[in-house]
Simulated assay, not measured.
Amino acid sequence: MELKFKSLSGSLPAYATDGASGMDLRAFIDEPITLKPMERSLIPTGLFVQIPEGYEGQVRARSGLAIKHGIGLVNSIGTIDSDYRGELKIPMINFGNESFTINSGDRVAQLVIAAYERVEPIIVSVLDETDRGEGGFGHTGVKG
């Protein structure tokens, strides 16, 4: 499947390895942006995308930035709808204890394209029973 991009930098997102599911998105900024601990910023990528109907773009944090520097996404995973045509901007946050500087060209997030189905919500008075029932939030414990 082809995915159409408009790029202000002239470059495209790319898969880092043959088995990668996410394409790396890079910062496209005029000057470095420094995030202090617990500070947030919207990082431009210079990319615009045309996602086919029936698909969504999922913007995800990069694991290396998260574990090495405490850098994540404000909304954990961002969704890009197929009808959005604006610039892709990454809502980054510094969860770490030290300031972190983002430079133009730095890989700041990943883009995964995934198919989805739309459903029709309906109201019912009773849901089907399951063995799990209402158990949630760690009800099965930590050890298996």
Rank of each mutant, 00 (worst) to 15 (best):
R40N: 14
D18H: 14
V49H: 00
L47K: 10
N97I: 08
R107H: 13
L111E: 14
S76D: 05
I90W: 03
P32G: 07
Y84D: 01
A115L: 14
L47F: 15
A61Y: 13
P52V: 15
N75G: 06
Y15W: 01
A14V: 13
E53G: 05
N103T: 12
Y15A: 12
L73I: 10
S82H: 09
I80R: 00
R26E: 15
T45L: 05
E98H: 10
D24R: 14
A109R: 03
Y15E: 09
I113C: 04
V74F: 01
I67P: 02
K36R: 13
T79S: 15
G70C: 13
E31W: 04
I51H: 06
L65I: 05
F100V: 12
G105K: 06
E98L: 12
T45I: 02
M23P: 07
Y15D: 07
G72P: 05
L35H: 02
S76W: 10
G78S: 03
G22H: 05
E56H: 00
Q110W: 03
P52D: 07
I113Q: 04
D83K: 02
G86I: 00
T79N: 11
T17L: 06
E56P: 01
L65E: 07
L65M: 05
N75W: 08
T17P: 14
S63Q: 04
I29V: 11
L111I: 15
A115K: 15
R60N: 01
A20D: 15
I77G: 01
S63N: 14
E56L: 06
Q110K: 08
T45D: 03
G19W: 10
I77S: 00
E39Y: 05
M92K: 13
E56V: 01
I71K: 00
F48P: 06
I43M: 07
G86M: 00
A114D: 09
P52E: 02
N94H: 11
L73T: 13
I51W: 00
I43Q: 01
E39L: 10
S99V: 09
M23I: 12
T34Q: 02
S99Y: 04
I77P: 05
D18Q: 15
V59M: 10
S99F: 05
N94F: 10
Y116P: 00
P37N: 10
G22L: 02
I51T: 12
A20R: 08
M92W: 05
G57F: 01
E56Q: 03
I67S: 11
A20S: 15
V108E: 04
F48W: 10
G19R: 12
T101D: 09
I33G: 10
I80G: 02
E31S: 14
K89C: 13
A27V: 09
A66L: 08
Q50H: 10
G70F: 09
D83C: 08
I67L: 05
I80C: 01
G54K: 00
V112M: 03
M23T: 08
G46H: 03
L73R: 15
R107W: 09
G54P: 00
R40D: 15
N97L: 15
S21E: 11
L25R: 00
D18M: 03
